[in-house]
Design a protein around this nucleic acid. Structure first.
Length: 645
RNA sequence: GGGCCCGUGGCCCAGCCAGGAUAGGGUGCCGGCCUUCUAAGCCGGUGGUCCCGGGUUCGAAUCCCGGCGGGCCCGCCA
């Protein structure tokens, strides 16, 4: 991957400073690798320590001891870029020449323009990102929201760098969970959704109602034979179930009563649901139409939510069709021929644990060194397959259909083991390349303050309701300030606020979602950044023409202006790191820094009213640099630009 | 029992992989700034045994060992 040197001013600075240091050191007979110096260069914590700092002991003990001798030599070796060198403690601090810095920025911004900071790969890849893939049994909740936002970010990162990306959603329309929904839906005569409720929300409640009714029936049965201590516990669980049922019943009147009647009549609802599940996997005709219909209704609700988020997909892959295609059977066939095939307690399995004994393979397949890997059971005794088996087939489909070089599975961290088993299984079946090119992008769960989440009990916060709340709040705030927000602008503010929360915290950290806080629009939110961008854009559009960077003067480059220039210069480096290491939180951090320097400057140092022309041009260049950096960061993160805010 | 992840002002987070300056932000709370490019902003104040104990090092929030606390995983569930 390459970013032309011109478009990465900070790389230029690093190179020049490092060469000067290495050159000076060799004068004193100290051997220094410029590359080591390059990477050791860092941003000083305070302005008084200059623009760039080098912790000397990190690169050479000798150099650290002879800093005072080194400094003047560095100044002369680095005349092109360094204005002043100072030794403080164990640090060597550099002041970058203003003319040099302004020249670098002017060239970078004029030559790279709107693609400033975005690296392009020499050889673009074909990349598949599978994400969200929430089961079609309820609306997207806040946890799937995190998945959606992160997956979208990964796709965007690759797209911007020139890769061809396919975004795929795996619709898991088989299995017990869907059977619960299909059962309820068909028994209740394919009910319509109440007015003012989305299909997926309604069906999510129906699903939870069936599940809860079944669980309640099972509890009652156990209660009949339970001892006293156990009975007390069961009764408490039952009370909680009934409370959930009551809550669900209030939102979808009639549904719960009807299900309770059915449960009474049937005697064993759970067995009936299992029967439905089996029929579904076999693809029997009597249910297939109802099945298709109800899944379709939930999926279209989910699609609507994703559209509101501005997160597109290229394909929707149905698990039932995967099974129908015979690919899953093919995987099973192939597994039986594998040397790792075994029986685990009577069920056909792959002994992927044996494969995992090879340390170099663990390394290559990113299986944690000490993780215990049990055999992967492929099918139940009744012959029906298990999820991971079908996932093997799906993975092969993704690779072959898309001709993918790289495939991401954006999947919660709790599935680390099955994801590792999946890679090992692929390897065991002879798909070495696929196994090595499958990346599990893991993220931690989202907890909601004051709510024990559960899909089976319809206890969740949905993406839709969060968006609604955010839209309302954005409107209120705008109204207070007399700004008129279009519907589109309100949505852009709302969904960006939600995405920001998801992107600002490292994916490996559990996120505690506080609805009240996300709705706030203070500093440290997407809205603050959108506002900052709107201010920058305001200046540029009022100026009315393209700023001429070549006429930017270097004289006034001090204080905040200097800080801004250095930050803008660093943007390409940050972009590359974030896009390749896929750490969105680093970009959020950078953006906050940028805004935090820009806003005070904006308040105190008028741009358009500046009478001195070279200085005005310098200021305009800084504004343009801020605008471009924020815009390209937004493109990477999937945040929206709002014109008027 | 074993494995993985997390622990940083009242609350949330960055820094840890590649150890270096007085540990950065945000939020909260207190006070101030709109006749000047958008006040969803800015300025000032308040607030920290970097979970604890050892070790390595000239130097540890960062690396190593041992604890403690929280989360997740160890299914013929997904």
């Amino acid at each position: 991957m390459r970013l032309s040197r011109v478009c990465d001013p900070y790389a230029e600075i690093r190179g020049c400073v490092a060469a000067a240091v290495a050159g000076a050191a060799s004068e004193l007979g100290i051997g220094l690798d410029p590359k080591t110096v390059r990477t050791a260069l860092q941003e000083p914590p305070r302005l008084e320590f200059g623009d760039v700092a080098l912790p000397l002991p990190r690169v050479s003990r000798q150099a650290a001891e002879r800093c005072a001798e080194l400094a003047p030599l560095v100044e002369s070796f680095g005349r092109e870029c360094v204005e002043r060198v100072q030794c403080v403690g164990s640090y060597m601090n550099f002041w970058i020449g203003s003319g040099y810095l302004v020249g670098l920025l002017a060239r970078a911004l004029s030559e790279c323009g709107s693609s400033y900071g975005i690296p392009k790969k020499d050889r673009p890849l074909k990349v598949v990102v599978e994400f969200v893939s929430a089961n079609p049994i309820h609306p997207l909740h806040i946890g799937s929201g995190r998945n959606a936002v992160l997956g979208d970010f990964i796709a965007r990162a690759h797209e911007l760098m020139g890769d061809r990306v396919e975004r795929r959603y795996y619709v898991n329309d088989l299995g017990l969970q869907v059977a619960y929904l299909v059962y309820g839906y068909s028994k209740l005569g394919r009910p319509r959704c109440p007015p003012h409720m989305k299909d997926d929300h309604f069906l999510g409640l129906l699903y939870a109602a069936v599940y809860t009714v079944v669980d309640a029936a099972m509890l009652r049965k156990r209660l009949e034979t339970a001892g006293e201590a156990e009975a007390r516990e069961l009764r408490r669980d039952l009370d909680s179930l009934l409370a959930d049922l009551l809550r669900i019943g209030e939102r979808v009147p009639g549904v719960v009563d009807e299900l309770l009647r059915l449960a009474e009549a049937s005697g064993d609802l759970e067995r009936e649901v299992r029967e439905v599940s089996r029929t579904l996997e076999l693809g029997g005709p009597p249910l297939s139409e109802v099945h298709r219909e109800v899944v379709g209704r939930v999926v279209s609700g989910i699609r609507e939510t994703l559209e509101r988020l501005g997160i597109p997909f290229d394909s929707w892959d149905y698990e039932s069709e995967l099974v129908k295609s015979g690919l899953v059977d093919e995987v099973l066939r192939r597994a039986r021929e594998s040397e790792f095939f075994t029986y685990h307690r009577g069920a056909p399995a792959l002994d992927v644990g044996k494969l995992a004994e090879r340390p170099e393979l663990r390394e290559a397949l990113a299986v944690p060194k000490t993780m215990e890997v049990p055999p992967l059971v492929l099918a139940r005794s009744d012959g029906t397959t298990l999820y991971t088996t079908r996932d093997i087939a799906y993975t092969l489909k993704k690779f072959s259909e898309s001709g993918a070089d790289l495939c991401y599975n954006v999947v919660a961290v709790e599935q680390t083991l099955p994801q590792a088993q999946l890679r090992l299984a692929l390897y065991a079946l002879g798909y070495e390349r696929e196994a090595k090119s499958l990346i599990h992008y893991a993220y931690e769960m989202v907890n909601v303050k004051g709510l024990a989440m559960s899909g089976r009990r319809a206890r969740y916060v949905t993406v839709d309701e969060v968006l609604d709340a955010l839209v309302t709040r954005a409107r209120e705030l705008a109204e207070e300030r007399g700004v008129e927000l279009t519907e589109d602008a309100a949505l852009r503010i709302a969904r960006s606020a939600l995405k920001y929360v998801m992107l600002s915290v490292s994916p490996r950290k559990t996120l505690v979602f506080d609805p009240d806080q996300a709705v706030g629009v203070k500093a440290g939110t997407a809205t603050y950044l959108q506002y900052t961008l709107a201010r920058a854009n305001g200046i540029l559009s009022r100026y009315g023409r393209a700023p001429d960077f070549s006429r930017a003067g270097a004289d006034g480059l001090s204080g905040r202006r200097r800080e801004l220039a250095l930050l803008i210069a660093r943007f390409p480096e940050v972009f590359r790191k974030v896009a390749t290491e896929l750490t969105p939180e680093d970009m959020v951090f950078y953006l906050n820094r940028l805004a935090e320097v820009f806003n005070p400057w904006y308040d105190s140092d008028p741009v358009l009213a500046e009478p001195d022309e070279p200085l005005r041009n310098l200021k305009l260049m800084l504004v343009y640099g801020v605008k471009t950096s924020i815009e390209n960061a937004f493109r990477l993160l999937g945040l929206d630009v709002v014109e008027r805010i």
